[in-house]
Simulated assay, not measured.
Amino acid sequence: MGEQQKVALVTGANKGIGRGVAEQLAALGMTVLVGGRDPRRAEEAAAAVGGHAITLDVADAAGVRRAARQIEDRFGRLDVLVNNAGITGSGQVDPADARDQIPSTVDLDMVRAVFETNVFGVIAVTNAVLPLLRRSPAPRIVNVSSHAASLTLTSDPDGPFAALLPSAAYSPSKTALCALTVQYANELRKDGVLVNAVAPGFVDTDSNNHTGFLTVAQGAAVVVRLATLGPDGPTAGFFAEDGPVPW
Rank of each mutant, 00 (worst) to 15 (best):
G2E: 15
Q4W: 12
Q5N: 14
Q5G: 15
K6Y: 13
L9A: 13
A13V: 08
N14G: 10
K15W: 05
G16N: 09
I17M: 06
R19K: 15
G20F: 03
G20E: 09
E23W: 01
E23P: 00
E23I: 00
Q24L: 08
A27N: 13
L28H: 14
M30L: 15
T31D: 09
T31E: 13
V32C: 09
V32W: 08
L33R: 06
V34H: 06
V34F: 08
G36M: 02
R40H: 14
R41K: 12
A42V: 03
A42G: 07
A45V: 05
V49L: 08
G51C: 01
G51A: 04
G51Y: 04
H52A: 13
A53T: 13
A53K: 11
L56Y: 06
D57L: 01
V58H: 07
V58L: 04
A62Q: 13
A62S: 12
A62R: 08
G63Q: 02
V64F: 05
R65F: 01
R65E: 14
R66Y: 11
R69A: 14
R69W: 03
Q70W: 01
Q70G: 03
R74A: 15
R74M: 09
R77L: 08
N83M: 09
N84W: 00
G86I: 08
I87T: 10
G89D: 02
S90C: 10
Q92D: 14
D97I: 07
D97L: 15
P103F: 13
V106L: 10
L108R: 13
L108C: 13
M110K: 11
T117V: 15
T117K: 01
V122E: 03
V125L: 06
T126D: 05
A128I: 10
L132D: 01
L133H: 06
P139W: 02
N143I: 04
S146N: 04
A149E: 01
A149N: 04
L153I: 15
T154W: 02
D156R: 04
D156Y: 03
D158P: 00
P160L: 09
F161D: 05
A162M: 06
L164P: 02
L165S: 00
L165A: 07
L165V: 13
L165D: 03
P166G: 06
P166I: 10
A168E: 02
A168M: 05
A168S: 12
A168P: 02
Y170F: 11
S171I: 07
T175I: 10
A176H: 02
A176T: 02
L177R: 02
A179G: 13
T181G: 04
V182A: 11
Q183C: 08
N186L: 14
E187A: 14
L188T: 05
L188D: 01
K190N: 03
D191M: 14
V193Q: 02
L194Y: 05
L194F: 10
L194D: 00
V195C: 01
N196M: 11
A197C: 07
V198D: 04
A199T: 06
D206M: 12
N208V: 09
N209R: 15
N209D: 15
F213G: 09
T215P: 00
Q218Y: 03
Q218S: 11
Q218M: 12
A221D: 11
V222I: 15
V223C: 09
T228Q: 12
L229D: 00
D232T: 11
D232E: 12
G233M: 12
T235P: 00
G237R: 03
F238T: 07
P244I: 09
P246V: 14
